[in-house]
Write a protein that binds this DNA or RNA. Structure first.
Lengths: 157, 157
DNA sequence: AACCTGAATTAGAATAATTCTAAATGTTAT
DNA sequence: ATAACATTTAGAATTATTCTAATTCAGGTT
């Protein structure tokens, strides 16, 4: 393999290879170069809740040989090892989220952006009664509406 | 068009064509034969939360000329007119639900069945704090786990 | 009753996201 | 070094859904 190393890639200061690899290793996964890049990209773009496609494009700037299949493989592995969550909104492409705290998602129907809403104190789904006999292992809350920026726009018009 | 009328189709007693058509009309849609069949099938199988495919298969027994595209068209129309909700769980095929009361969905990860969980009294998503400035128009709650029947099975084993 | 217009339906092609496959490459333990 | 196994890769295959263009249908006119 010849040295195709990209010309000086910008690595944001808050993402350190070592730390990313350590987290991957802690989860029980071997920290390969690809997993490291994929997870790193996701951590850097957590706010955007990127799709596999978007992660692929970004990962390619850091590691040009990476393939789409690998991005999917890595994401699947990260999900299985509880480092990453999938976010499903309608039938749109799956988005990925490295925030493993229990939280809700809000989709702005005007601009399409996705926001994390912290969950209030109670870990129970108060408001929703779980019939006895059902064992709930996971909860998912998605909301839709208009974000502050888009609401503003509408008023101005 | 020759008379292809199917040999005696069983129409469950609790679904009356008139009532179904009336609801479609009330929603502002013209109650065509296809919409009537699609909505009727969905009402009869609400518990199963069927996919477009499953609805198509069932609808075909009542109206053999119906096409998949029409099933999608009808479902889309019903969704737009607030007679039906889409249910998205993972990236699996969209399921349809004619229960328009606000409620949560529970997916049994063992048998794959989907259940409706009624919402308790409060219409607010207590437990979830919505940051000010965000206007929420829709909420969706999905839970996963094991249903009573499957839990039983596991114990027996 | 034929006629017009727009809506609805249809079959089949197209698309998009994801999964699968088989070969190549990399890694770890012997 | 070598075997054994995991990971990556390109590209093909799959799946659910949407699109397209032609046809049929329904309701309101002449």
């Amino acid at each position: 393999m010849k040295d195709v190393k990209a010309r000086t890639v910008f690595v944001p200061p808050h993402r350190e290879r070592g730390a990313v690899d350590a987290r991957i290793a802690e989860s029980g996964l071997r920290p390969t170069a690809q997993r490291s890049v994929v997870y790193g990209v996701l951590l850097d773009h957590a706010k955007e809740h990127p799709t596999a496609d978007e992660i692929f494009i970004q990962a390619k700037t850091e590691k040009p040989e990476i393939s789409m299949a690998t991005v999917y493989n890595c994401l699947d592995a990260l999900v299985k090892h509880h480092l990453v969550k999938q976010v499903h909104l309608d039938r749109a492409a799956t988005r990925y989220c490295p925030n493993m705290e229990e939280h809700a998602h809000f989709l702005c129907e005007t601009c399409g952006e996705v926001w994390d809403f912290e969950i209030a104190v109670k870990p129970r789904m108060s408001g929703f009664r779980v019939p006895s006999g059902f064992a709930v292992t996971q909860r998912e809350v998605n909301m839709r509406g208009v974000c502050p920026a888009c609401a503003e726009q509408e008023v101005v018009r």
